[in-house]
Each structure stands twice: as C-alpha cells, then as structure tokens.
Design a protein around this nucleic acid. Sequence first.
DNA 1: GTCGTTGCAAAGCGTTTGCAGCCTA
DNA 2: TAGGCTGCAAACGCTTTGCAACGAC
Lengths: 123, 123
Amino acid sequence: MLRKTEQREAIRRVFQENHDPLSVQDVLDKAQQDVPRLGIATVYRTLKALVDEGWLKVVELPGDTSRYERTGKGHHHHFSCNKCERVFDLEGCLPGIDTLLPPGFLLQSHEFFLYGVCADCAA
Amino acid sequence: MLRKTEQREAIRRVFQENHDPLSVQDVLDKAQQDVPRLGIATVYRTLKALVDEGWLKVVELPGDTSRYERTGKGHHHHFSCNKCERVFDLEGCLPGIDTLLPPGFLLQSHEFFLYGVCADCAA
DNA sequence: GTCGTTGCAAAGCGTTTGCAGCCTA
DNA sequence: TAGGCTGCAAACGCTTTGCAACGAC
C-alpha cells in the first residue's frame, strides 16, 4: 500500500460507510459506484493488503465465501440472516467455553455463529 | 442409492470406522485402500446421496472444505486442531445463546467451533 | 438386457497470478 | 521517469457434470 489510488480510496470508503462484514462481491458492487472500471482482481489484492496492514479482518463463515470487516471492534461474533443473507455483528460472548473441552485439549480460540431472521426481514 | 456397489460399501465402511468429521479427501484416501480405482467424483456423488438419505450430515467449518459425519449423534459442536488439522466432536452446548440476539432478531440455529491443540498433538 | 453407477475428462465457480499498459509520487 | 498499481485473461483448486463403458439386479 505505497500509493494512494482512486480504487483504494473507494474500497476504504465502502468500509467506512458499511460496518458489518462484506463479501468481495459486496465490496466490488459498492466500490464500482465510484469507480466503474474497477476489476475484481484489484478488490482481492486490495482486501489482502488491507488485512496484512491490519486495517481489515477476515470473517470466515461456515459454507460461505470470506467476508471482511474493519478491525478494532473488539471481541464479537456474527449473526447471518437466512432471508437476506446479510451478516451482522453481535456484541458479547458466552462464558464457560472451556468446559466443553475434552481432557488434554488446549483451547486457543473460538468462533460462534447465530442463524435466523434479522429485524428488517422479520418486520 | 438403488444398487449396492463395492464403492458405496467402502465409503459407508469408512464412516463406520471413523467417528469424527471427514473431508472428501479423507474419505477418498481411506476408501481407496479397499477400492483402489475409486474416483473422487464417485465420492462426491455418494456423499451427496448419503446426505440426502439422512445417513450423513454435512459439517461446514469456517474457511475449510466441507466435512461429513454420521447422523444421529445428537446436538454437538466441533473442535479443530491447529496442528494436525483433525476435527473432533465436542459434547454439550452453552446456555444463554439467545441473550446475544439484538432486539427484533429471530434465532433459528447456531454453530460453535473451538480451535487449539488436540490431546495427541499436545502430548 | 435394463438402466443405475462409475471413472475420466471437461466444465463451473471463486480466487490468484502473469503481464503489458497506466498513473502516482 | 521509475516502479507500484490496474484490468484483463489465464491459471488454480475444489466441486459438479456429460458421457461412454460397466455391472447389479
């Protein structure tokens, strides 16, 4: 990320305007509103660079393509809407995760996903 | 699944002898010990048929290819070893999942993954 | 013998990479 | 002007599909 280009500015702006995790296609669609000739390879390369730089974080959902979100939101998990396919941040966590661990196993991290219908779709 | 073939018998046997979730490649490798000419397309087709039949269940892990396990094990979650890449079943669950839900959201299901080092690798 | 099943190769799909031209610094 | 960045197209890895040969019933 040595140079400032309109493609990169547009991609950064997408994340400043959208706080929940976005797919590569989401980012391409939104950034192309600013830079119509933007190619998907540039989106992949820029997302990778922003992750390496620590500005973005990869969110991997089971059975779905990777999504990306801003870093610095603190420990949180995600909710995936079965209707509109959008992914939302959830605050908080659950205690007692280590009680599920079999003897001799070492816990290093965990992931947690809720599925259902979001408030917009339920209304 | 109308006919009984040696390919299908070999794939079923793999799951009777291995109780944790297996990847397509795991199944191919193990089943080829019985049926060396077994092709990967047959593994994909057979796994799909066994899932449709309700004999297997798909286990999707974040950022990994799908795995398959026998149905009928009851509600449980999974542990993925960061060293040997094996996936293990975990018994039990955590209470209070619905407390993480924002107002207006409907909960339909959840997934939970622990990561770390398994007992074999820690020893 | 019928027709469900198999293995191979080709096609799909999301992601990555090679490269010539472009554009920031 | 140098060399990092971009878009295009080709390459990749995993999964699915078309098809002719095979084999269960």
